[in-house]
Design a protein around this nucleic acid. Structure first.
Lengths: 117, 117
DNA sequence: CTGTATCCGCCCGGATACTG
DNA sequence: CAGTATCCGGGCGGATACAG
């Protein structure tokens, strides 16, 4: 568990027990995570590249969400001890198994959300 | 659009353009929405029943999230002008098309989240 | 029974400056 | 290049009281 606050954590547990989907939301609910997965999947493996593709995300958030994705075993962070430093992010197999599902969800959204909202 | 704050809305738009998935997250990202969809799907159509199934959710949140789901055309709110008042919630067709996708996501979570987190 | 109104704490996420 | 540190504001969600 990543959570640090111990207050009302029972809610989380109870909700997870009732709706395991919530675990998924916890992992993917971050504001930029799904977009990050897509961009990494599309071959943008560098921190700077991701920032270029998403100019509105701050370095703090990019760093934080990448770290969370890494902790949730969705991305791999490979550091090249060079000068200048280089870091490359890639998807884990776990993340790749998720992609088709996200695609379904995306298609559903295409059809039912953007089509009429 | 439901949003009222006009500040930094460009981020939302840009993110939606880059990752339409975000629209889905906006609709489903609420803390209890997916659980609610499941419970309604399972036949708990009444406000009180939903509260009984989720004793930790407050009336405020239950009411708010049901209202948002209604506005997003995922649930139907039918009011019976009786005494005592009765309200029944049911899933729209749109929500029912979503259920299989949620099920996939749920299965993915079962396999990859709860199995090893 | 089915909610609304009000207040409030906390955490997410943003802005900016700084570092190896 | 690839981040971390710090401060901060807004909104989400919770607790409680009240209403039709």
């Amino acid at each position: 568990m990543r959570k640090t606050t111990s207050t009302n954590f029972s809610n989380e547990e109870a909700l997870a027990a009732i709706c395991p989907m919530h675990n998924v939301m916890r992992v993917l609910g971050g504001r930029w995570k799904i977009a990050l997965l897509y961009f990494i999947h599309q071959g943008h493996h560098r921190f700077g590249l991701l920032q270029k593709k998403m100019p509105f995300i701050t370095t703090k958030m990019l760093s934080a969400q990448l770290k969370e994705l890494e902790q949730d075993d969705l991305v791999i962070r490979k550091i090249y001890a060079e000068m200048p430093p280089r870091v490359e992010y890639s998807l884990t197999e776990k993340a790749q198994t998720l992609l088709p599902v996200l695609e379904d969800l995306y298609n559903w959204g295409e059809q039912y959300i953007t089509a009429q909202a």
